[in-house]
């Protein structure tokens, strides 16, 4: 049976259920706009560990364990964990997987990894290769700063375009059977290079990739934007959001009414995040901490999450390469 729909889209024949989700966030995220919507808020960015990296790994492990325990099952029921993060060689995900002790697939899609892991997890289940999978991501502000930018104590000024990497982790358990919102359709994105080189302009660099995926999603499914209660992009930030609305408008598609960017849903203005939040946990915290409960209670019926990832590295930036980007879309319907 062909489950491909159009050019880039998967229409799951037997849509997997989002059985449970869990979130853990840093102190700054805990005080932000989603205050009270996370399962746990850390007192500091170290979470009792001795490095930022271990702190991030700890969060990922906690999120997976918590989400799994909420299904009423144990880790043994999980056929596969799909997870990723922003650090070199997926340090956080791999070190968490070491303790979790279940079959594991590490994914790198930069900040698009939440959508990517859900998309693939659902494909494993719908393909009959698994009955329960956990999809999880993490990011950590300080670990990302030292890897991508500067040491955390360096006195540099952040430009207005800069986005603040979210400290946190989100996990979701997808299952073949059960009650809950279902992952019905997913669109796999292409790598799109908008030609921007400024590593502070990640949001704008990812916007054409998001536009491309959204456009193909609508083409492949024959849906209109208003089919969804809300369309969420991962971390385009203030400038990227403006640009995405414009790019879609030029295609004759108006998304302004029901579109929001996760990167603008996490921090309050006075927390000085500049252009917004970024990082794997940006879409993960909004999806698992905010949208998932609303889908469960039926206050949201149809959500399209477009995870957006900026695929540059410190090496590619220093070698003066432009920033390639990717976006994957997953449709979740209650």
């Amino acid at each position: 049976m062909n489950k491909k729909s159009g050019n880039q889209t998967i229409a799951y024949a037997d849509p997997p259920v989002l059985a449970a989700a869990a979130t853990i966030a840093g102190p700054m995220e805990g005080e932000g706009l989603l205050n009270g919507q996370f399962d746990r808020v850390l007192e500091d960015n170290l979470a009792g560990q001795d490095t930022w990296e271990k702190s991030e790994s700890y969060m990922l492990e906690w999120a997976v364990r918590t989400a799994v325990s909420r299904t009423g099952g144990t880790l043994d029921d999980i056929d596969c964990i799909l997870a990723g993060d922003l650090l070199n060689q997926l340090m956080s995900a791999h070190f968490a997987a070491r303790s979790l002790g279940r079959p594991f697939l590490g994914l790198y899609g930069a900040c698009s990894t939440m959508a990517e892991s859900m998309l693939l997890g659902a494909a494993l289940i719908d393909g009959g290769f698994a009955s329960r999978v956990a999809a999880a991501v993490s990011s950590h502000h300080d670990a990302a700063e030292r890897q991508y930018r500067y040491p955390t104590e360096l006195g540099v000024q952040r430009p207005p375009l800069a986005q603040w990497t979210v400290t946190g982790s989100g996990a979701v358990v997808l299952a073949r059977e059960g009650q809950g919102p279902r992952l019905t359709v997913a669109t796999i994105g292409k790598v799109v290079d908008a030609g921007l080189k400024d590593p502070n302009a990640m949001g704008p660099a990812m916007t054409p990739a998001a536009a491309d995926t959204l456009w193909h999603h609508l083409q492949d499914t024959g849906r209109q934007p208003n089919y969804y209660d809300i369309i969420l992009t991962g971390d385009l930030g203030q400038v990227g959001k403006t640009l995405l609305i414009q790019l879609m408008q030029e295609k004759g598609i108006d998304i302004a009414a029901n579109y929001e960017d996760c990167g603008l849903m996490i921090y309050r203005e006075d927390q000085d995040p500049h252009a917004g939040a970024s990082g794997c946990a940006s879409s993960a915290l909004v999806m698992c901490g905010h949208a998932f409960p609303l889908l469960v209670t039926g206050r949201l019926k149809r959500v399209l999450l477009i995870g957006t990832g900026s695929l540059h590295s410190p090496t590619s930036y220093q070698q003066k390469e432009s920033i390639p980007a990717i976006a994957h879309a997953v449709a979740i319907e209650a």
């Binding site: 375009l161 908008a194 030609g195 921007l196 400038v239 640009l243």
Partner: peptide, 17 residues
Amino acid sequence: FQKWYQARFNQVKPKPP
């Protein structure tokens, strides 16, 4: 496209204060 997008980006790019 990249040229066009760079120009479009420059229009909305926030200037430092």
